[in-house]
């Protein structure tokens, strides 16, 4: 079976800076891939390329076995690739329902162009219920929610369309242990629903080994290590990073 998403030899340069230096990766249907790496390792750049937000300098992408050139975020979305950015891309002053349908609002047939707020509320409630997220009201403005609730809304928005590949950029950043546990539960529940592939950029090795099926370590724009989560351990990962750190210091 073809990989859900596959990238081959991706290079991305910004002027004289090489952010990605020949990255190849893949994620299988129903798999959770955890991407670890230092700040500046190129994780976020890779993410932006996989979502169509930026185009690579060179390299190729395949979605479900088909060669594609992602022209825009909308194009990637139309192929079932959804992303939750670290800043969540939520608008504080808009309601939960409006945020969940941001830029794919439901419209009434008459008068044409009028927002169908009732339909958006109904569907937002349905999606949140489906994935087991409990928010007091979809009319609440997002700025009134906690960090974990916002993350959940952003994830719900991403999966509310027919997402096949979900990218999560540091979903547990700046989150307490209890809120992080709720988001981990949510991700595992999404996985259990079947053929959704999830790529997560992570910082915490322990959390990543808990949740991911496979781990990929990025250093200075390349993939330096890749293994099934069950076959590696926090000490092993720490060891690789420590070696890298010493090499940089002695250089």
């Amino acid at each position: 079976m073809a990989s859900a998403l596959r990238a081959d030899n991706i290079v991305k340069r910004f002027g004289s800076v090489t952010a990605l230096d020949g990255v190849s990766m893949h994620v299988e249907p129903g798999e959770i891939l955890g991407i670890l790496g230092d700040n500046g390792a190129g994780k976020s750049t890779l993410m932006k390329i996989l979502t169509g937000y930026q185009s690579p300098t060179s390299g190729t992408l395949q979605v479900h076995g088909q060669d594609v050139v992602l022209r825009s975020v909308d194009h990637a979305r139309s192929l079932g690739i959804e992303c939750v950015y670290q800043d969540l891309a939520l608008v504080g002053g808009l309601s939960v329902a409006h945020n969940m349908f941001l830029n794919r609002e439901k419209l009434r047939r008459f008068p044409p162009g009028m927002l169908d707020n009732g339909e958006m509320r109904r569907r937002a409630r349905q999606v949140l219920e489906d994935i087991g997220v409990n928010i007091p009201s979809v009319d609440l403005e997002v700025e009134r929610l906690s960090g974990g609730q916002r993350q959940a809304i952003a994830v719900a928005r991403a999966v509310s369309s027919d997402a096949r590949i979900l990218l999560l950029d540091e979903p547990l950043a700046a989150m307490g242990a209890r809120e992080a546990a709720l988001i981990i539960d949510l991700v595992l529940r999404l996985k259990a629903r079947g053929n959704l592939s999830i790529i997560m950029i992570m910082h915490n090795y322990g959390q990543t080994l808990d949740i991911a099926d496979r781990i990929m370590l990025m250093q200075r724009g390349t993939v330096t290590y890749e293994k099934a989560a069950a076959e590696t351990s926090v000490p092993e990962l720490m060891d690789i990073v420590r070696r890298e750190y010493r090499a940089v210091r002695s250089a």
Partner: peptide, 11 residues
């Protein structure tokens, strides 16, 4: 409300 977020949502 969120210029970058709105752009990321494709607006």
């Amino acid at each position: 409300g969120n210029l970058i977020g709105a752009a990321e949502a494709g607006i």
